[in-house]
Design a binder for these strands. Sequence first.
RNA 1: UCCCCGGUAGCUCAAUCGGCAGAGCGGAUGACUGUUAAUCAUUAGGUUGGGUGUUCGAGUCACCCCCGGGGAGCCA
Length: 458
Amino acid sequence: MKRCDIAAALASEEPRDEIVIKGWVRTRRDQKGFSFLELNDGSCLANIQAVVDEGSEGFERILEMNTGAAVGVTGALVPSPGKGQKWEIKARRVELIGPADAETYPLQKKRHTDEFLRSIAHLRPRTNKFGAMFRIRSETAFAIHDFFRGRGFINLHAPIITGSDCEGAGDMFRVTTLDLGQPLPKDAVEADFFGKESFLTVSGQLSAEVFALSHSKVYTFGPTFRAENSNTARHAAEFWMVEPEFAFGDLHDNMDLAEDCLKHCITHVRTHCAADVELFAKWVEPTLNAQLDAILARPFTRLPYGEAMEILAKCGKTFEHPVGWGKDLQTEHERYLAEEHFGGPVIVYDYPKEIKAFYMRQNDDGRSVAAMDVLVPRIGEIVGGSQREERLDVLERRIAELGLDPAGYWWYLELRTFGSAPHAGFGLGFERLLMLLTGVTNIRDVLPFPRTPKHLEF
RNA sequence: UCCCCGGUAGCUCAAUCGGCAGAGCGGAUGACUGUUAAUCAUUAGGUUGGGUGUUCGAGUCACCCCCGGGGAGCCA
């Protein structure tokens, strides 16, 4: 007989004479002559309770079925006379599939700290919280694809290994097949696998621009690597990024897309992972539902960078970092705008060109570019994007101004030579979206196996 | 990388001025006829992150190192 997911068993409309459940023991409560065994198989947050009578086949090993053990139960799905669950299993047969020594199994039947669970990342998905987290992560990824597919966007698989050191979004990890334990040969770069310097991607944007100018609407969704020595709760060396790119659109279309995308994901996950999201609302961030409601309730505030700076200058608060035209928006500024002044998501746009990347489209005022960042309470920047410079002469001038080598950008410039068109796009930090959705405050707790400086366990 | 805080039993934490290293949970053993992080009783469990120093005496003070957390910068 086939195994039944616990999620399916608990959703059953009627009793079943014969059902097979397999999973891991969360807790066992022994009574005189029988035991309650609660199993979880990851298919849903809830456990299923099996009642194992001393007459059941396999009962002689019940005392070995400790928390953490893998166990199979065959029996009947019956209405539970006890409180707290609709269905339970009246076991006819129990099987100890894989024991777990109670004395050394690290997970207890009580709350653990996130820090401790990070140190046992191979076992933490067996907890309620991280079990829920990684179901939500999966469903959110689906929501991303669902959103863009519904709008006619093509999913582009951008390369992970790149030869262009001009992606410009941060320090890069070097890729090599050379043995770093040996002295490097002469002409090491030429001798290396690709015959030139190679790196892990820091952005799929340049690839996406190519395909935006062939397929009109594309998005990438894949791993991204930044070798920055960042030690914060919002940065990881390996993370996932969603990067849509579309032709024949401008910065305001870009803002619309970002806003709709965030709202779609929130609604989708709340609908399809309701119990899992509730866990976070109950135990992790008590105001989570109110926050998510507030994001969905109204259009995001949109204001030019210059106005944002004026608000910060006039608000009467003293900031650690200076405020004024040309200064970057610091974390304290972002949080003030999103959390205190507007109390919801804010899209800041038209930044000074000096503090943004070379490829962003110059505005007519001569000093700003068509960039936009979406700032949300608690997280800060969750989306960063821009309309791209599609005018060949303007782009060439900007590259020269910044002292960059145009040779490295030859194909990027050719996109502006042959059939150039206005286009725009953004990067959405997938982990930051998960932090927004769950109220979790550390990026290490939304990644299955987080990579951060000096941390490469598991 | 910079600043701040921390590291004591498997986990979460106490330990007064430098004076016998403790509790809860978890584990083990037993009790209990339907439990819900079951309950009750008994019990085992320690190189106080590592090193050096001060002292009659160091978990406690000083210095160095390792590890963790929070904040900042960089960004998504």
